[in-house]
Each structure stands twice: as structure tokens, then as C-alpha cells.
Amino acid sequence: MKRFLATTAATLFAVTAGLTAAGSAAAAECPSGHFCVWQDSNFGGQRANWSGDDGWWESWISDTDSSWANHGISGPGIKDHVRVYESAWQGGSMTICLAPGQEVGYNGAANDRGDSHIWSTGC
């Protein structure tokens, strides 16, 4: 019985932790057809959004980006994926590639590193 309770408690904890992590933030507010970048994690703080490419983000958002969301609209032949780079004009490494509807609330490795992005039909 003791073992059963312990297992149940562990399971409950795991489920709760999972739900908390998954549901910690509300839906990201990002216009449809746009790629959005926030200065804070979990889609908070100042937001920059683009419907097109930007080879060199403005200084207030470049290297201060902490969360990202792709709200592109898909369709045949439409460039709906977003590639994010750590240098202007895709000079550095690509840190992430997002399909429409995909978001990143925080990324320790890519935090405050973005400088440019392009839309493409794939990654």
C-alpha cells in the first residue's frame, strides 16, 4: 500500500509538473501572418513582429530576444517557416527554425542572440 501511494504521488507530481510547464503562459499574442519576438521569456515585454524578412533587427530587439512565435499562415508555395540567425544577414548560426504555430518560450542557448530572420518554404 505504501509503495502504491508513493508511486501514485510520484505520478501525480509528474503530471502536475508537466501541466504547469505546458500551461504556464497564455496564448502568445502575435498577429496572424507574422513572426514575433519578445524581449522577455514566455512572450512578455516589448514585442517585435514582422510579416516579411529582416536582415538586421533594430537595436532594441537584436540580441535582447527571449521568446519567439511563428504565426505564419500556410498554403501551397507560401514561405511560412521562419529561420532565426544569430548574426545579421544570416551570417552566424541558425538558432531555430519554426513552422507555423510553433513557439519557443525560452531558450538558454539562443537567449539574447538573435539578429536576423528569413521566411522560407522549409527549414
Binding site: 496564448a27 538558432t95 519554426l98 519557443v104 525560452y106 531558450n107 542557448a109
Partner: peptide, 12 residues
């Protein structure tokens, strides 16, 4: 592996 956790809603 890069550290990014990519998420999406499952109800849209």
C-alpha cells in the same frame, strides 16, 4: 539538443 523547447497548442 540546442536547448530550445518548441511548443504548440493542440486544440487549434
Amino acid at each position: 539538443a540546442t536547448g530550445a523547447t518548441v511548443t504548440a497548442h493542440s486544440d487549434g
